[in-house]
Structure formats: C-alpha cells, structure tokens
C-alpha cells in the first residue's frame, strides 16, 4: 500500500488560515489501511481543526467526506455538485489522490493534510516499512524476493558494501542490511549462484528518472 504520516497540526492550521469553509476529504484506499487518511481520521482531524479555530475566535465550517478512492475519476464525481460551495479541500489521501482531485476541481485550492510516504507493508500493528520504489524493472526473481534498489541504502546491485555489520546497515541501527537479507534468502533457496553474476547497469528510464510515467493498456481502452 501507499503509506503516509499526518502533517503537524500547526502546519495544517497555517494552510487553512485564509479559509472559513472547507472540505476535509479522506479516502477508503491505502490511507485507510495505514490509518492516516480514512473516515475516522477525517472525523478526528475535522474536530481538532474546529476546536483550534474556535479557540482562536475564527470558527471554521467543515464538511467531512470520505471517498471510495481519490485516485479514480468515478469516485471524485459525486463531490462535483458541492465542491465549489467551499473555499478549499484539505485532503488526507496520498499525493496521487490529492493531485487527481486538484486536476478535477480546477477552481478549488487543494491542501495536503498528510505527507505521503512509500510503497510498503504493515510489519506489525502501527509499523510500516518500505518494500518497493516502483522502478519499473523488477529483479526480485534474481535477489531472493528482496529488492536491492529499495532495501539497500545505496541501491547497490552487488552488495553488501563494507558497512554491513551483524546484519545491520551502517545508515542506522534500525535498518537491516538489504544485502544480508538477500544473501540469507538466496542461501535458504539454494540460489546463491545468482550472487556471483555481474549485473548490467540498471536502466533508470523506467523509474522516475525517465520523467513522469504512464501505463497504457490497449486491451482495456
């Protein structure tokens, strides 16, 4: 899923300072699963903002909504009839959802209520970790199902570097060495021979480096 973290409330209050009437919009997709932008978070955020503004003597009218997904046009359409009755939309979906809404509602300012994080997994209750950078050229079959681009702090294709000690990356004691994980897994799979091969330079054009990306499925159009 796409993960994220809430923006500090002070930052949000500063963003909405010019407005008296806004929509707070959540999303039932990824951000609901990682508990940063779902229906419940919409309610909590809206209440917090109302209280803060009332305390400052400038009440704020908020309409609370939570869309099935902010990244699909069909779920944005229901907002169209009323969106222009409000001065701004504070979205707590991911960056893709926020931008898509901005594209669809050209005359309404869109404000981000969260900082979008990464493509990750729930390692345990309340803890998410990155797994994929969406580089567009997957090599997981060669690396024991563990991504060197994402899991190695230097994205090395022939790791581990000299900073791997006791399975820990030199960058932080909280970061496992991705290449130690790869080697352990290759060993478990009896595929260590994959390690001994020189890998071609990675083509980054399929990643963000090639410019904004687009997927076109002719069979679906």
């Amino acid at each position: 899923m796409i993960t994220g973290t809430p923006k500090p409330i002070e930052e949000i209050l500063e963003m909405i300072e010019p407005y008296e009437k806004i929509i707070v919009a959540g999303c039932f997709g990824c951000v609901t699963v990682c508990r940063v932008g779902g229906e419940k978070e919409v309610q909590v955020l809206a209440s917090t903002l109302r209280l803060a503004r009332e305390a400052g003597g400038r009440p704020l009218e908020i309409r609370e909504v939570c869309l099935e997904r902010q990244c699909d046009p069909e779920y944005l359409d229901p907002m169209r009839p009323y969106v222009e009755d409000y001065q701004a939309v504070l979205s707590i979906a991911c960056g893709a959802g926020i931008q898509f809404m901005a594209e669809k509602f050209a005359r309404t300012p869109l404000l981000p209520g969260i900082n979008t994080g990464f493509l990750g997994v729930t390692e345990r209750q309340g803890e998410w970790a990155e797994r994929c950078q969406g580089c567009g050229d997957c090599v997981l079959h060669l690396t024991g199902g563990i991504c060197p681009v994402t899991r190695c702090a230097k994205s090395l294709f022939h790791g581990p570097c000299g900073g791997s000690v006791g399975g820990i990356c030199e960058v932080s004691r909280d970061v496992p060495c991705g290449w130690q994980l790869i080697i352990d897994r290759l060993k478990a799979l009896d595929q260590l021979e994959n390690y001994g091969k020189l890998k071609p330079y990675k083509g980054w054009s399929s990643a963000r480096d090639g410019g904004p990306r687009r997927i076109i499925r002719e069979d679906m159009i």
């Binding site: 702090a153 230097k154 994205s155 090395l156 294709f157 022939h158 790791g159 900073g163 030199e170 960058v171 932080s172 020189l198 890998k199 330079y201 990675k202 980054w204």
Partner: peptide, 21 residues
C-alpha cells in the same frame, strides 16, 4: 559512504551504478 554521515545528510544520493559497475 552514505551521505548520512556527512554534514549534508539532506543531499540526494545518486548511486546510478555501483562500484563494481
């Protein structure tokens, strides 16, 4: 060494190719 260790930890890291490449 990772840029984290220096005085510009906010720098973007490149690692387009690795040292073996």
């Amino acid at each position: 060494d990772h840029q984290k260790f220096g005085d510009d930890p906010q720098a973007k890291n490149v690692f387009d190719i690795d040292s073996i490449q």
